Amino acid sequence: MRLVGVESRGRTISFAAMTTAPVAACPVCGTSSDRVHSRYERRLADRAVGGREVSIRLRVKRFRCMNHECGRKIFAEPAVGVAARYQRRSRVLTRLLISIGLALGGRAGHRMTGHIAAQVSRSTLLRLVRELPVPEPSRVPVVGIDDFAIRKGNVYGTVFVDMATNKPVDLLEDRTSETVAEWMRHHPEIRVVCRDRGGP
């Protein structure tokens, strides 16, 4: 990517940039192509600078797929390291918003984004958090077990927490002793279990 120009207008700083890769791979078949079909401009929001919003106007090439058997005839080159496909914000800003969503949740996170010149709705923050991949259950020797309400008064699940890091390890769909016993049979590395005095 090459920076072409910078423009400051009011509360916004706008960067004009363009991609420089001579070839790109088709996202469907993986065939490399150097035949440029056309160009278009992507507008991306980025992290604020000095309390001012940042916008990136990125000129991107469209290539023709050289594989005649591929269903994708024309594809846009990816903005590698800058933004994911179809996204309207940079990877850096997305990571910042995810951190805010994880730390503060929807309403408080929405208020915080207004202070960092990157305001998004509470539903956007929650959607970014929900889109995170679920980590694989880790192996821990000391776990805490408790129930949590999926639907208060009706449906409860079980949460396992790593007592060393205070992070969730796994979630179960119910809170019966049979389900917990089955889960523990598959985790022989557990040495200590911390639990409340709940009946199940």
Results as ranks from 00 to 15, higher is better:
T19G: 15
E77C: 04
R57K: 14
E136T: 15
T12V: 13
R111E: 07
P200R: 05
R9H: 06
L3R: 13
M163D: 03
G199D: 12
T12R: 12
S90V: 05
L3P: 03
S8M: 14
T94C: 02
G5R: 13
R122I: 05
D196Y: 08
A21S: 14
V169E: 00
A117D: 05
M112A: 11
S121I: 12
R88C: 04
V180N: 02
S8K: 11
A118L: 06
F148G: 06
I150Y: 11
G199L: 14
Q87D: 09
V60T: 14
S32W: 08
T176E: 08
V36S: 06
R111K: 09
M66T: 13
R127A: 08
E189H: 14
C194Q: 09
A181V: 08
F160Q: 04
A149K: 11
P135H: 02
R185E: 14
D146P: 07
P188A: 02
E41I: 15
E41A: 12
K61L: 04
A108R: 14
G153E: 01
G106H: 02
L132G: 11
S123I: 10
G101P: 07
S121H: 08
N67R: 11
R197V: 09
V54D: 02
A83P: 03
V23Y: 04
L125P: 04
T20W: 05
E7K: 13
R42D: 00
H68R: 14
L102G: 11
L172P: 03
M184F: 09
A108H: 07
D196K: 12
L44C: 08
P188F: 01
A103R: 15
G30D: 09
V6Q: 09
P135G: 04
V36L: 05
I150R: 10
V54C: 06
R111C: 02
R107S: 13
G144A: 13
R59G: 07
S99R: 12
